[in-house]
Design a binder for these strands. Structure first.
Length: 408
DNA sequence: TCTGGGGTCCTAGGACCC
DNA sequence: TCTGGGGTCCTAGGACCC
């Protein structure tokens, strides 16, 4: 029988911001950007939540609901730093700690009773240790499976500890909304509601063959979850993740939609550079390049192309992304978002012929040097994007009709 | 309400091969 | 000849999570 703790930081981003600016304490705070910006709420203080503000809500909506809230930009470096500090504290309680995301972790506390006492006592010690080392509050769920531990930490919020005694899992889950089950989102909730399933207890009464026929693989997992089991499927593998990334992407939403080809292609160049850089940092080579294009009306398309040979070179990524863009963009249509996404990683690119290999090698060296310059002098120190913009101008000059066009 | 950015996993259809 | 069955790869879209 396992003893799993799920530790979830309370209003993490907001709490970290409060450490840097104590005047925020006790106020309605929204992290994510200015109230008139495009974007969504990353985190809201409990005070702001009283007005209906919650994460993922558009900033403009949050402003309407809570105009007196203080809107602050997020600081990912700060959150990463504090996430590491939390991780260190947790590591003192058990060697088996998995950070499931920046603000939550699973700890396998099985067999630590002699060291830390029974689960509730250990959890209170842990809670206090996190508090004293980081000045941050967390909530802790204790159960025999990750799934139930996660749901119970949610029920414990804010700043609480909740232990689901072994054997009581079904009783604990039964009265909760199905939406509380990780992996059940808006759509699945609606589909379940249509079957008369509202509570986890309702779900538990359906047999798994029926759920499987109705929801496929996911239905089978769902049947297990309703009984408090870590049933497998994406949720559990996500938790176990921590290995090599499967994809890398960057995207950008414009402050104002644009149909300007030069602007759009410059954005693609910048996104390609960012993706290429991440590939090099991770020592990865990607075979599939994918473009993401969202129009003004929010209709979104993705178009991919798989290369014969994997790459980690900015210009190769850009060439593909731009080709996909030229082929698929309805010229003149205003664009809201562009994204560049790469996947199908190979450990390394296979050999080319010698001449090409040499050229490739030198490109790689140049890019690595540019990466080092950026580290030293900042992101704007070196940019291929500006070079691309200049080249593009020459081309449009020769081809005033604009895109798509075959430059000479 | 006017909708971010970075991820993971699943499904489904078509091409292609044996 | 009127139509197999399995496997793999690729592409597009979508649900979901933090």
């Amino acid at each position: 029988m396992k003893t799993i703790f799920h530790v979830d930081m309370d209003a993490f981003f907001v709490s970290v911001e409060e450490l840097f600016d104590p005047s925020l304490k006790g106020k309605a705070v929204v992290v994510g950007g200015r109230p008139n910006e495009r974007g969504v709420v990353s985190a809201a203080s409990y005070e702001a939540r009283k007005f209906g503000v919650h994460s993922a809500m558009p900033l403009r909506t949050a402003y309407k609901m809570c105009p007196h809230a203080l809107f602050v930009d997020g600081h990912p470096e700060r959150y990463r730093d504090y996430s590491h500090r939390v991780f260190e504290v947790l590591g003192r309680f058990s060697p088996q700690v998995e950070m499931a995301s920046i603000d939550e972790a699973y700890i396998d506390m099985t067999g630590t009773e002699r060291l830390h006492g029974p689960p509730l006592r250990a959890a209170h010690l842990l809670h206090e240790a996190v508090r004293s080392q980081t000045q941050l509050n967390c909530s802790i769920g204790i159960a025999t499976s990750r799934l139930v531990a996660k749901i119970s930490s949610d029920q414990a919020k804010p700043n609480g500890v909740l232990w689901v005694i072994p054997g009581q899992e079904a009783r604990f889950l039964a009265p909760l909304d199905v939406r509380k089950v990780p992996g059940v989102g808006k759509v699945t909730e609606k589909n379940l509601n249509a079957l008369g399933i509202h509570k986890v207890g309702d779900l538990a009464r359906f047999d798994e063959t029926f759920l499987e026929s109705r929801f496929g693989k996911w239905g089978l997992a769902l049947a297990g979850k309703a009984r408090g089991l870590d049933a497998g499927g994406w949720f559990d593998s996500e938790v176990a993740a921590g290995g090599d990334p499967k994809s890398i992407s960057h995207e950008h939403t414009y402050g104002e939609d644009t149909a300007d080809a030069e602007t759009l292609e410059a954005t693609l160049a910048r996104l390609s550079e960012m993706v290429g850089r991440r590939l090099r940092e991770n020592g990865l080579h990607a075979r599939t390049i994918q473009l993401k294009l969202r129009y003004q009306d929010f209709s979104t398309l993705t178009r991919a192309h798989t290369l014969e040979r994997a790459t980690q070179i900015d210009t190769e990524i850009f060439d593909e992304a731009r080709a996909l863009f030229r082929k698929n963009w309805k010229a003149g249509a205003k664009v809201r978002l562009l994204g560049v996404h790469v996947s199908s990683f190979d450990a390394c690119a296979p050999q080319l012929d010698l001449l090409a290999e040499d050229k490739h090698e030198r490109w790689g060296q140049a890019l690595a040097a540019a990466d080092r310059l950026r580290d030293k002098y900042g992101e704007s120190a070196v940019s291929l994007a500006s070079g691309m913009r200049a080249r593009f101008r020459e081309r449009t000059h020769e081809n005033p009709a604009g895109l798509p066009g075959k430059p000479k």
